[in-house]
């Protein structure tokens, strides 16, 4: 019984989602029709131009090429953010003194829009992948570090007492209690960082690179191809949605079967 119940509620959910997407497309079409009456640019922004433009992008392979380039930069930036952010978060979470002492610096850095670093990034790293990756990393590092630190602070102090009483070396305490204990918070904060990184990536790719989805946006504008611009925007949103959904699937509850 409960199976069929779950089935119908799932079916209804999917039906509702399809309906919402259709409605959004309808509004998109309607909006560009109405707005396009006295502004031809807006008219080209509608689905009538976007859909063929998307087919073109798909057929000539540039959609895939730009997406792969962007995802590669996102991936490298995130790896850097995790590689630096997790250890930073562990230190901030385990040493209250360090956290309090560094609060002014951390909070100030955290509040700087990553794009404010763009000119500095270009002048230090030149043009190409490096400054883009840097901007993604600097955007993603704060969610990772602060999420990890909050996770460490939420650990039961009792577990630490147990590890100490059993004679754990500090590194063994880290391996057996802290890391497995904060693993869920680290994964959650990486998911958050993934979203932030993706959002920063597109404007970052408008600076000194000639590939990627951000560049594709500028390119479409420069060629006055507004259908392609709209298609690119949809691609950006879809990929962001997909990678977030995949990551969420990866981190949905599953037992960590062993103490490593």
């Amino acid at each position: 019984m409960s199976n069929t119940g779950a089935f119908t509620s799932r079916t209804r959910l999917y039906a509702a989602r399809v309906a919402t997407v259709a409605m959004a497309c309808g509004l998109w079409w309607l909006g560009t029709q109405l707005g396009g009456r006295n502004n031809p640019i807006i008219a080209q922004f509608g689905p009538a131009d976007a859909v063929p433009a998307f087919v073109d992008l798909w057929v000539d392979g540039s959609a895939i090429r730009d997406a792969i380039t962007s995802l590669r930069r996102l991936g490298v930036g995130l790896l850097i953010a995790v590689g630096l952010g997790v250890p930073l978060g562990l230190i901030l979470g385990m040493r209250a003194g360090v956290e309090q002492a560094s609060a002014p610096v951390v909070q100030l850095l955290r509040m700087i829009s990553p794009l404010a670093w763009a000119p500095a990034a270009v002048s230090v790293f030149g043009i190409g992948d490096a400054p883009v990756t840097f901007l993604v990393a600097i955007a993603a590092i704060w969610p990772v570090a602060l999420g990890t630190a909050a996770g460490v602070r939420a650990l039961s102090p009792g577990w630490t007492k147990v590890a100490r009483s059993l004679g754990a070396a500090p590194i063994e305490h880290l391996q057996t209690v802290v890391l497995p204990g904060v693993r869920p918070q680290i994964l959650t904060s990486v998911r958050l960082a993934l979203g932030v990184g993706w959002i920063v990536l597109v404007p970052a790719e408008m600076l000194g690179v000639d590939s990627g989805l951000g560049y594709a946006v500028l390119n479409a504008r420069d060629r006055l191809d507004y259908g392609q611009l709209a298609a690119t925007i949809i691609v950006i949103g879809s990929i962001g949605y997909m990678i977030d959904a995949i990551f969420q699937r990866l981190l949905s509850p599953r037992r960590n079967r062993s103490v490593r």
Partner: peptide, 17 residues
């Protein structure tokens, strides 16, 4: 430790310094 089985919890002290 809630993420580890009973056997792994009991074995914990054996891996410590």
């Amino acid at each position: 430790l809630p993420w580890a089985t009973v056997a792994d919890n009991v074995a914990l002290g054996l891996r410590y310094r």
